[in-house]
Structures are given as structure tokens and as C-alpha cells.
Amino acid sequence: MSDSLLTGIDDAQVLDANIALPYTLTTGRAAGTFLAGLGDKRILASRCDTCARTMTPAQDYCNRCGEPSGEFLSMPETGTVTAITRTESVTLALIRIDGSDTDLMHRLSSGGPAADVGTRVRAVWADTPTQSMLDLDCFTPDDSGAEPGTPSPTGDIEPITEIPYAIDLAYRHSYGPHYGRLFDELATRRRILGSKCPQCRNVLVPPREFCDICFVRTAQHVDVADTGVLQAFSIIHMEFVGQTRKPPYVYAEIVLDGSATRLIHTVGGHDVDTLKERLSIGMPVRAVWKDAADTRGTLDDIDHFAPVFEQLP
């Protein structure tokens, strides 16, 4: 294939994939104390004694000299906008809290009087704290003309040490010229496709544009068998988040006949103890396909690979 593949027509077919993971994040002393303070409707700063700076929000380390911060201070709820932007979903601002030497980033209220650089603002507190930066719901313009407050010592505050968190990232992966054909063939003909390197003559599964070793473009797609040999296997007893099969089961790396690369799948058809005893490296295996009615055009259309014990001497 030449560079002409780069002028190929757009293919709307994509694989939807999600990466969703749970976390328990450790706040550290300053963020933990700051977030605890928000729950108590207080804005906390930390003090760098080396630089004589008051940092809001509180930081464990001075972002100028890198030294650990000293005492926490309870700051006024008022300040002045130093920068502002309105996006589709939120109005963000940098706010110089009265008595602070650094700016705090936060939200501004969406309704009400317009704010600009220089606008005096005051904190609006969320009704129910959730151990989040948004326990301070937002800032809103303050036209009371009240004198700016001053920082004061905090007294003891028990920091929040851990915060539950989650990531959920969505992807639309392109099939591209090789996987597109591979999965079409799987779905329509139940054939597994490889690509053949014109230089080393090896057949690579799944098919790919370049031979990894020769760095030449593969010349053609070829069918490989749904039989192969067991190159490596292990027995999965462990359960973990995101697992798609119920342990115990046999994880296997299989080299399909006619190919030179490995395919990741499972070996089944017997109980796990039998497989542990009788499987060996180099043993022939064959694909056991699911019912045609269940075809999805993925590797999962193969229910498992079955060992071919009878072919052993």
C-alpha cells in the first residue's frame, strides 16, 4: 500500500471505548486543611515565612522558593477580581482575597450584576459541604462597600486526608484500513486476517501497515487458520476491577497456524485443574466459536480455544 492510504475516504465506523477508574486521592496537609476549612465556611491561606507571602489557597510548599509553608491563616471572604472569563459552562475568575499575596481561581455567580477586573466580590457558600473546592459555591459581586477584612490565625483544623475520585474517559477509536477489514472478515466470514511482510515473509496478526522488524509496508492481507499452538498460558485466579471473565480461567497466548505473532485469548473446554495438568507449551489449540447468532465481529466471537489433546503422542 502506498501513501495513497492517506487520501482514503473517511470511515464513520469507530470503536467506542471507555476508561473508567476509581481513585482515593491523598490531599496532603494544605489542601486537606483548606478543603476542611471550606466545609466550615472559611477560606484558608498558608504563609511562606521565607518569602513573607500569604498564599490563598493554602499550599504545602511555597510556589516561589519551594520551602514548606508555615502556619495557616483564616482569610476574609472578600476580594477583588484580577482576571475573568466566561465560557459556555462557567464564569472563571482569579480573585485576590483581601490580605493575600496570591490569587485564587474560582467561579463567579452566573446571574446577577456583571463582574469585571477590579470588581469587589464575596464568597457564596454551598448549602451542603462535599469535601470539594465547590463547597465554596462561587463568588458574587459585593457592592456593600465594606472595609476589607484581615487574615487571622485559624486555630486547630483537622485536615481531610482522602478524597474519593473517579475518571471516566470516552474514546472513539478509528478502525483504520487494517482493523476495519480484520473485523469485517471476523463478522462476515469468521476468518482471521493477517498481513504479510514482503521482505521477511512473516504473516502478522492482527494485520498492520508496517512490519515491525523490517519497517517495510506489508503487501497483502492473508487469511490465517483458526487453529494454532499454545505459546504461553497462565491460570487466572485473581479477581480485579474491570475483569470480563469469572476466575478461574486460562489466559493464553496463541500463535495461529500460518502466522508469526501472538493472539491473546483464553483456553477452555475442560475444567481448570485438567487444563493446568495437561496443557503444555507448543500444544495445538483450535478456536471454538460462539453461536453465529451471537456474532459481534470481535475476538469475543471466539468463545475460547480448545486444546487438541488427542493429537499428542
Binding site: D3, L5, L6, G8, I9, D10, D11, A12, V14, H173, S174, Y175, G176, P177, H178, Y179, R208, E209, F210, R217
Partner: peptide, 12 residues
């Protein structure tokens, strides 16, 4: 480049 994968762009 919905018709291509990362590897296709990189290899090219």
C-alpha cells in the same frame, strides 16, 4: 483522520 489509526499516521 477517522479512516486511519495512530500507527498509520505515525508510519506514514
Amino acid at each position: 483522520w477517522s479512516s486511519l489509526q495512530h500507527v498509520d499516521l505515525i508510519g506514514s
